[in-house]
Design a protein around this nucleic acid. Structure first.
Lengths: 260, 260
DNA sequence: CGGGGATTTGACACATATCAAGAGCGGTGG
DNA sequence: CCACCGCTCTTGATATGTGTCAAATCCCCG
């Protein structure tokens, strides 16, 4: 269970926000084959030769400062984006101005698929810390898909998983109570950090209570109270954005306690 | 704005549940090119010659009785399904047994995309009236996609729109109050019936109050009260499952009345 | 005509929102 | 280096929307 060869991040380190010196240009290789995220990201599951072909996919990286928009609702759609490093939120806005966070995105995850159908992004993506994304021109993705059945299928899987993921959020929003939602949220984050070689039990939140609340369909005060409650119950320890999960099973149990 | 040539259903008739005599085998053509739904369904936007090629796509139709499952959570994934006639709900279940309706599906809409990623369906699909679906083997869809760029792209669009649609439900569940949710729901149904050539202002609900509630994250009593409220306010008229929308603008207004 | 599920409606309970105040922390500028 | 400012977070008191429980009615279907 130790970090595998291609997993070059150190295990058990809490994932902490990073800051890149302004203006520095990324010199890490742009090729998917040598990217340590390749088995979390789009190329996941591709074999050696296919993996090499894939390098035509990404021809640009883009660096974003914290708070910067990767794209905005209404922007023309042209590319998908894979998070290379950093952390993002995606936001959806209603005509009357109400808005909701519809997702948080970390290394290896794909953003922008909402734009393919309408040819315009229906929501916005914002960097929550200084971040870097791989720009994947959609036209190139389609072309590669045609030439490489494996990759074609892989992309469908990624979209499909996005659909499944969103359905589970619908379930969360539709059937869970506040503390259950927060528990589910923390466990989900923990699991995703684990998959990236970071500690499962200790991490830094990149988002504010308000953003968590927006995502979970709660007000920030309710989120804060739930955090406090978990802490009182010894399930977690919270210091600002620093979270330690002390009792995973307790959190799990807390998710399934609805009588109905 | 009259029904176009390929739109052969009569306009302004309330869409009513249909019953096929048991055992009757569908003799309507299985070819997409001659299906009156082709511009709502997967082939939407394809030109003449491409449209002809598409007929390799569907080689089976499947008839379902009301209440029957098209697929269940955990079933192996092999095909997508296009609703040919009738009405479906898709349901997602939590480990602890709680479940939620994640969507309602009518003619021309595609179900089953949740299965591609996990290779297993994550939720179930149930016919809410006697229905018929076109079975689209996924392998065939991939193959056609490789050969026909237009179709390839079209499928991505369909998946993308599913993602967008689900995000708007997340918004509904996360930010709207009960009456807003129901108003949004009715307007959405109305719009989809309209696209199919049925009346925008008069239709029959295929689902129970409980199913509506499940979809909207509300209890059935709350749904019932909201219906009554709308009726008192002269926005709609309700008799059991028969709905008449009397004041579209009123319903729209009702959706955007949150101060926050 | 009878039975059972679906729907409506009322009374009440409860979870979460709202409003408000204060504390903690980080960044900026003196 | 310290003080101040603004933002985020916490916590309390109260309001309110929706859930829960219960009973009556409606309606479809056998």
């Amino acid at each position: 269970m130790r970090g595998t060869a291609e997993m070059q991040m150190q295990d058990k380190e809490p994932a902490a926000p990073q800051r890149y010196p302004q203006g520095e240009v990324s010199r890490v290789p742009t090729r998917c084959a040598s990217c340590n995220l390749h088995d979390l990201c789009l190329p996941c599951g591709l074999s050696g030769q296919d993996l090499d072909r894939i390098e035509e996919l990404v021809y640009t990286r883009k660096r974003l400062d914290r708070g910067e928009n990767l794209y905005r609702a209404g922007d023309d759609f042209s590319s998908l984006y894979a998070v290379r490093s950093g952390f993002f939120k995606t936001v959806q806005t209603l005509e009357d101005g109400r808005e909701q966070v519809t997702g948080f995105h970390m290394a290896g995850e794909i953003m922008g698929m909402d734009g393919i159908g309408p040819e315009t992004h229906s929501g916005s993506a914002v960097a929550l810390e200084d971040s870097e994304v791989c720009v994947i021109p959609y036209s190139r993705l389609e072309k590669l898909g045609r030439e490489m059945p494996q990759f074609h299928h892989q992309f469908h899987k990624v979209m499909s998983r996005e659909i499944v993921q969103e359905r589970s959020v619908m379930l969360l929003l539709g059937t869970m109570r506040a503390e259950e939602r927060l528990a589910a949220f923390l466990l989900n984050l923990s699991q995703r950090f684990t998959a990236r070689g970071y500690s499962a039990s200790e991490f830094y939140l990149r988002m504010t209570r308000e953003e968590i609340g927006s995502y979970l369909g709660l007000k920030l005060e309710t989120v804060s109270r739930a955090f406090s409650r978990f802490q009182e119950d010894g399930l977690i320890s919270v210091h600002q954005k620093h979270i330690q999960i002390l009792d995973v099973l307790g959190l799990r149990r807390c998710m399934g306690q609805k009588s109905d």
